[in-house]
Amino acid sequence: MSLEIPDGLGDLLRDFTVAVLRDRPNDLYDFAVDYFSKVKETRKPKSIPMYVIVDEDDEGAGEPDKEQFKPKTRKYNRYARRQSVSAERYDPEADDDDEDKVIYPKTDEQRERLTEAVCGILLFRCLEPEQMQDVIDAMFEKAVKPGEYVIHQGDDGDNFYVIDHGLYDVLVNVNDQEKKIHRFDNRGSFGELALMYNMPRSASIVAVSDGVLWAMDRNSFRRIILRSAFKKRKMYEELLENVTMLKSLEPYERMNLADALVTRNFSDGETIIAQGDEADGMYFVESGMIRVTINHPEGGEEEVGRHGAGKYFGELALIENKPRSANVYAIGKVKVAFLERDSFERLLGPCLDIMKRNSEIYKNYTESS
Rank of each mutant, 00 (worst) to 15 (best):
K234Q: 14
S343A: 13
I319T: 11
A87N: 08
L122E: 06
E278H: 05
Y90D: 06
A279V: 08
V285S: 05
A330W: 01
E148M: 15
I5T: 14
D95K: 15
Y104K: 09
I5H: 10
E360G: 11
R113K: 14
S2E: 13
N256C: 01
H152C: 11
D137W: 06
P64H: 09
N159Y: 08
P323N: 07
L171I: 02
E320Q: 14
D23L: 15
G299H: 00
H152M: 10
L257V: 01
N173W: 00
F184N: 10
E238W: 05
G269K: 03
A260I: 04
I136F: 02
Y161N: 10
S267E: 01
A19K: 09
R125P: 00
L352Q: 15
A194C: 05
I53P: 01
L352H: 14
G62S: 08
K333R: 04
Q68L: 15
S209V: 08
E67C: 09
M1T: 01
D280T: 09
R82Q: 04
D277W: 00
D58Q: 09
K335V: 08
I272H: 02
I331C: 03
E99F: 00
A19R: 11
Y236N: 12
A203I: 05
S359G: 14
L9V: 02
V52S: 14
Y283Q: 07
L123D: 04
N26P: 00
F190N: 06
L213A: 02
Y104C: 03
L114W: 07
E88H: 06
N256Y: 09
R346T: 03
G154P: 02
N364D: 12
P71L: 14
V212G: 04
K70G: 12
